[in-house]
Write a protein that binds this DNA or RNA. Sequence first.
DNA 1: GCCACAAATTGCACACTGTGCAAGTTCTGA
DNA 2: TCAGAACTTGCACAGTGTGCAATTTGTGGC
Lengths: 209, 209
Amino acid sequence: MEKVAETTEPPGRREQNKIDTRKAIADAALALARRDGPGSFTVDQIAASAGVSRRTFFNYFHSAEEALNIRMESFLELAIGIFAEQPAGLPLLDTMIAAFGATTQVQNLGTHGELFRMAADNPELLRAQLHSWERAETRIVQAVQERLGSGVSHLYVTALVGSVLSCTKAAMQDWAGETPEPDDASGADLEARIVRALSLLREGFAHPA
Amino acid sequence: MEKVAETTEPPGRREQNKIDTRKAIADAALALARRDGPGSFTVDQIAASAGVSRRTFFNYFHSAEEALNIRMESFLELAIGIFAEQPAGLPLLDTMIAAFGATTQVQNLGTHGELFRMAADNPELLRAQLHSWERAETRIVQAVQERLGSGVSHLYVTALVGSVLSCTKAAMQDWAGETPEPDDASGADLEARIVRALSLLREGFAHPA
DNA sequence: GCCACAAATTGCACACTGTGCAAGTTCTGA
DNA sequence: TCAGAACTTGCACAGTGTGCAATTTGTGGC
């Protein structure tokens, strides 16, 4: 019985080291972004601050922005996971509302808002974030395709998923803009906004309430 | 009478040279992308091919991808212009449908589909395009805010505009994917898709027709 | 036409990015 | 304990993006 619960934890020293290194780099990048501003530091600084070589940094991330953006990725990862867990029978938009509303329970929610605000004056970071949303979109489109079968048009699915993500993004931006303090307890505020935006979508934006 | 119609044409040699140079660079970039593939050429090659120095290239564009992406920008520019011309009384979504449907009359429509397809296997180009859509979104949001006055919530406007652009993007992607030949006469196909996607949006995606 | 001024182009230097490769170090399993 | 796999690191190299100063080119007054 050397290995226990191999389904979820075969870490070993190697895996754990990689996880630690990855986290150390991401943390170093965030700390530098907070101190010097989003675009005002180099990869060398991140690497030195994380205690690894420049080359190792690039073994983990393609760019400084990607190291920052890993948190946004985890948020979208969570959204995709929750969506996949939802029962398949319900109307699609209700399922989406449930899934994206639940994402607000993610750890360190305040940091996500912070990164949103950072992207406002850092084009490279903004591009990285937009790219993250784009990749999430294609993954969700695939999941929805599988769920609905081949009877639904591709355009319907892509337009729907794109709109849902746009509304979620708008809700997060609105929330991040009006919640400058890194308050992790304001998840309810964000959830309310997401639900509101997606409800507007479900009603075809008929009333500008 | 040395100058005629100074309202729209004070070009002079200077202005015209800049326009020509800009166009020469963009054309050179597109030609190289067609020949070698989107990410397989350098700024030096573009500059040489356009007959300018490397430094001059960077006076016009921030990156190779931006030089490619200028056409997508012009498309979005056209959309914004048409939207601004629409009468202000109509329902917002109808105005949007009219505006984005009309954009398909842009010159060299086939090239736009081509660039969409290129972005599929070139992350940098994709990011540049996403960034273009993002900037267009904020501009349209501003225009809508002015049109509707301050009585409407910010979240409503951003969610609406984001959804409209997502649907338009989905329509273009669908069209570009199923129209591999650079056929400039297929504008009607694209327009039909855009109108269909936006109609779905207006109905809250109720029927997956 | 001439000339001073403004605007655009260019070469150069410099810091930084991103990647292949080979040598070194650390973990794994028998 | 040890061979081999996996990870890290230094190095080299091509490419990017930008400030600066020198040069060329268009503009407008005289």
